[in-house]
Design a binder for these strands. Sequence first.
DNA 1: TTGAAAGCGCTACCAG
DNA 2: CTGGTAGCGCTTTCAA
Lengths: 334, 334
Amino acid sequence: MTAYGTRPTMKDVASHAGVALKTVSRVVNGDAAVRPQTAERVRDSIAQLGYRRNDSARVLRVGQTASIGLILEDIGDPFYATLSRAVENVAVQHDTLLFTGSSDEDPDRERALTLAFCARRVDGLIVIPASDDHTYLLPEIAAGIAVVFVDRPPGQIDADAVLTENVRGAFEGVTHLLSGSHRRIGFIGDAPNIYTASLRYSGYVEAMAAAGQPVDESWVTMTSPGQAEIRRALHRMLNGPSPVTALFCGNNRITAIALRELWTAGAQLAVVGFDDFELADLLGITVVAQSTAEMGRIAAELLFQRLGGYRGETKRVMIGTRLIVRGSGELPPA
Amino acid sequence: MTAYGTRPTMKDVASHAGVALKTVSRVVNGDAAVRPQTAERVRDSIAQLGYRRNDSARVLRVGQTASIGLILEDIGDPFYATLSRAVENVAVQHDTLLFTGSSDEDPDRERALTLAFCARRVDGLIVIPASDDHTYLLPEIAAGIAVVFVDRPPGQIDADAVLTENVRGAFEGVTHLLSGSHRRIGFIGDAPNIYTASLRYSGYVEAMAAAGQPVDESWVTMTSPGQAEIRRALHRMLNGPSPVTALFCGNNRITAIALRELWTAGAQLAVVGFDDFELADLLGITVVAQSTAEMGRIAAELLFQRLGGYRGETKRVMIGTRLIVRGSGELPPA
DNA sequence: TTGAAAGCGCTACCAG
DNA sequence: CTGGTAGCGCTTTCAA
């Protein structure tokens, strides 16, 4: 068995090839000024020894790691997975590696992940915040780490952000239901402390107000999305004195659970959901779609602009939504 | 504006706190042997200067990076996103950071990603292969990097692998259709050079043979899953001399596209798909489900066992599938 | 075209 | 309990 944990270094390659360490460095980095014959010899030694440059050592000198960190809520969620892929696509173009970590909506975990990435000296960070206080990033930013926030704005600090038109999107979705003669429309959203959830709720409220429709308290539930919570919410809005005829769901997970509940309960309700999701077309679900991949792409491009030396004003990019009509939102009131 | 790109080092903290560099190191690493009073002073300086340890330098001395790399096909695909999350959950327990990269089924890209991770000196690697030759990893393995393969076995080298019971899973899915009195059953799978695709095809063939059913050549298509390809495949198997009454789909993407095509064509066909997917329950799709998260978890645990010093024989863990009956697979022949 | 030496920021080892 | 020194593997600077 080969000696465990031993790795050839440039020094080893150098003595094997009978050249100076610096010459090996030149070959490895493709510096032109090496005689082809010498370079060939060095490459032979590299192959024979199975040498691989230690980028940690390189980083120490160069100061750039060609890596960025992505902090999101849950990489297992299709929304974030799509976003992640878009970020990766841009990173690849810049020969940059990607650290990914899930915060699970926990501010402490977000902070720990972020700082761990910083300790690894990532060049930049793309953060989907779980926390509402990012002052802990100030020393990092001062030291030159670029940070772009996505989906939710930074807390207490000034930084680039790429956000969805949450209010307008929800407004349009609810208005679509209203235009279908619905008057009593329910809203199930994520917990109210979540940025996007509260904005989408605002959109709902504004749309109802704009149509001159009162909102009954029993129609609205904001909660972290679990099956039990959503079942209760539906029960409340369907069995009160003025039962709803339509439902607006605040995100993809809520839509999925609500559909499942409505399905098993056999309830016929018009439904519009915020977020598109796979096979929504087959299920015929009308949604307010975010441009998830575009958000990731734009955020990453912004990050690399900053890394490239761009020092302009902090930007806040707003990404629009689009209503996709598929049937579930066009069901008439019962 | 703060000086850009400058970061305090341990030396800076040391002089600021009026202690030796080594004392700062002790405080940062929680070495007990520091007077509380001194430690306090050091911590003050750290906070004031916004110091953050440079892990690249640390790695250089310690040799361990507390990071692993995950190479998969596409982080945007729910199957891999789920797997990725399971890996991350284990990594977190070991205070280990995760690099992720998508190979897009391209062997060269797999190799480039893998070696880039190795150059960063990740402690270990979890690879969902795109390539069928992993000899390029031999020097890395010799140097002590642990590698576990998932979903597909390593090519040309011996290493741990966590695999799904592909043949048996497909066999059961097809047998389920046969038990519903179907005789003419189609198969659409991924390209035949893809490991899982060819095994699932074998399962199909074996099931048909076991039932004494001949397979018409027009019933089988193996192709990279695109809408046009699948439409053609369906056309072929539905409009030939002996049209199929049932369809077995080789993975989640194929199932989704096929369902969409069948839907728009208005064709009534029994369908069973390999891979479960979100909302399959609502759509009533019968599937052969893989334990995706379990595969990721087991692979990661195996990796950390190796990293913990386990030197046992190379393992090949087989993960079973389960048939989930939801209606689409129980449609009788037309 | 090639080489020698210094040093990036940190930890291991040995002294005090 | 605290400090000094060597050196991890590489790139940078200067010299030959």
